[in-house]
Amino acid sequence: MKNNKTKLTPEEHRLFGDLMPEELEDVLHSGFNRRHFVKLMGLATAGLLASYALGAEQLFARAVEMEDIPNLIPEAIENGVTVNFKVNSTPRNVLVDSRMTLLDTLRERIGLTGSKKGCDHGQCGACTVIVDGHRVLSCLTLAATCQGKSVITIEGLAKDNELNPMQAAFLKHDGFQCGFCTPGQICSAVALMKEAKEGQASFATKKLSTDPKSIILSEEEIAERMSGNICRCGAYPNIVAAIKEAQTGKNVPQNWLFTD
C-alpha cells in the first residue's frame, strides 16, 4: 500500500531481530502491518513489552501500516456506497453496505480494531473517534456519511513513534484496568483538550452567560465532560488525574496510602 519504507529505531530493530527475524525484511520494506502485529502478539504477550520496553513503546505508538482493504464477495454488500475518506491521515477508499457503521468499517474492513463496540447504541462511548476534529460515536455514524471526512482513531493519535501526551498520562495514572473502554476514553480526552481551549461550556460550567474563552478544567468539569465514556472497571479518578496532568502539563500526584 505505502511504498515509503519504515525507518525503524534501533530499539525497534532489535525487537524484530530478536523476536521475528524472518519478518524483519518485510517490515523494513513494506512497513509494520497488521499481520506482523498479530504475529508479534502471538509470540509473546504482555511481557514482550517489558523485555523490549523502549522498542515496544515506540513500535506500539506507531499506527500499523494500512493494508489494502480486501473486497468482499458481491453478495456481502447490499446498497453499496463507495466512501473516500481519510483515516489517521491516510486516504482510504472502501465500498460498504449502506448499513455499515463507521465503527464496523474501521474494525471489520480496515482492520483498525482499536475502537471498541461496547453497546452499539451510543450509550457507552467505547467507540469514540475524532471526525473532523470533533469527538463522535462511530457506532452511530454510517460510514456512508463519512465521504470526504477525516477520521482519527486511537491508532492515529501518536506522532510517528511518540505517544500522544494523553496516552502517556493514562499510562502513568493507570487510567484503565481492562483497557476496553480506553481507546474511546483517550480519543474523548484528546478532543476535550481542544474543546477546553475553545472555551466550550459544559453542564458543570458555573457561569454560562459569559463569552467562551480558553479554560483549565476543574476535576468536576473533567468528570462531567467525560461522562459519555463509561468505564465499568471504575478507573474514573485515574482518568480525571490523567487528563488534568495532560492539560496542565504539571505533575498530578498519585496517592496510595499505607499504614502499619
Partner: peptide, 16 residues
C-alpha cells in the same frame, strides 16, 4: 507501583 507492563498496548488500541 510500577506502570502496567501491558499498559502500552491498551493506550495505543493494540491490545487484542
Amino acid at each position: 507501583g510500577i506502570n502496567r507492563i501491558d499498559g502500552i498496548l491498551k493506550i495505543t488500541g493494540k491490545a487484542t
